[in-house]
């Protein structure tokens, strides 16, 4: 590009900026992503269950996985210590000593699957099979009294689980009168 071309490009950008700030030329260096590439990385699961993989688990199966891979950090039956407590605390949130756990606080059951699959166990994230993640999710829901120990958790049932604290969140975006 000559200096003159460059000058015109700048003028074009400035002129475009006056009319609409969105016109900036880009080099178009993104490579098309294939479906297989996306599938390998797309690990997010929303409350509607989109993104949940095939597979299933129950609390009974999850107890075994939990004892092997979770208990060292989160205590027996999710009681906590040395790290976060996962069970109990329902009814404490308005007290002087609130206990925030999956059962008392988390608004969406799908988050348990999403977070466990992406980040747990802490020292070996993304190592559990999908069935193991479903089973641990079921176990944690069961320990919190939300499902029975033989209830099957899968892509269809998990989004239908209603968490106890679901309706106690006030959405502050976009309005925020603080």
């Amino acid at each position: 590009m000559s200096t003159r071309d460059l000058a015109w490009a700048v003028i074009a950008v400035v002129a475009a900026g006056c009319a609409r700030a969105t016109v900036v030329e880009t080099p178009n260096l993104g490579r098309p992503a294939t479906a297989a590439q996306i599938a390998g990385w797309d690990i997010s699961v929303g409350p509607d269950g989109v993104g949940l993989p095939p597979g299933s688990g129950t609390a009974a199966k999850g107890a075994v996985v939990y004892e092997q891979k979770c208990q060292a950090c989160h205590g027996a039956k999710g009681a906590g210590q040395p790290n976060d407590r996962l069970v109990g605390g329902q009814g404490t949130l308005a007290s002087k000593t609130p206990v925030r756990t999956i059962g008392s606080y988390w608004p969406h059951a799908t988050t348990i699957f999403d977070y466990t699959r992406r980040a747990m166990p802490y020292v070996q994230p993304q190592s559990l099979t999908d069935d193991e993640v479903y089973a641990v999710t079921a176990y944690l829901l069961h320990l919190n009294g939300i499902i029975g120990d033989s209830d099957e958790i899968n892509a269809r049932t998990l989004p239908t689980v209603k968490m106890p604290n679901r309706d106690n969140f006030i959405i502050m975006y976009p309005a925020r009168p603080r």
Binding site: L93, P98, R100, N168, I170, M172, Y173, R176
Partner: peptide, 13 residues
């Protein structure tokens, strides 16, 4: 988490 037990979500700025 507020004193009444409810929580503010998406408190961005």
């Amino acid at each position: 988490l507020q004193a009444d037990g409810r929580s503010l979500m998406f408190t961005y700025p």
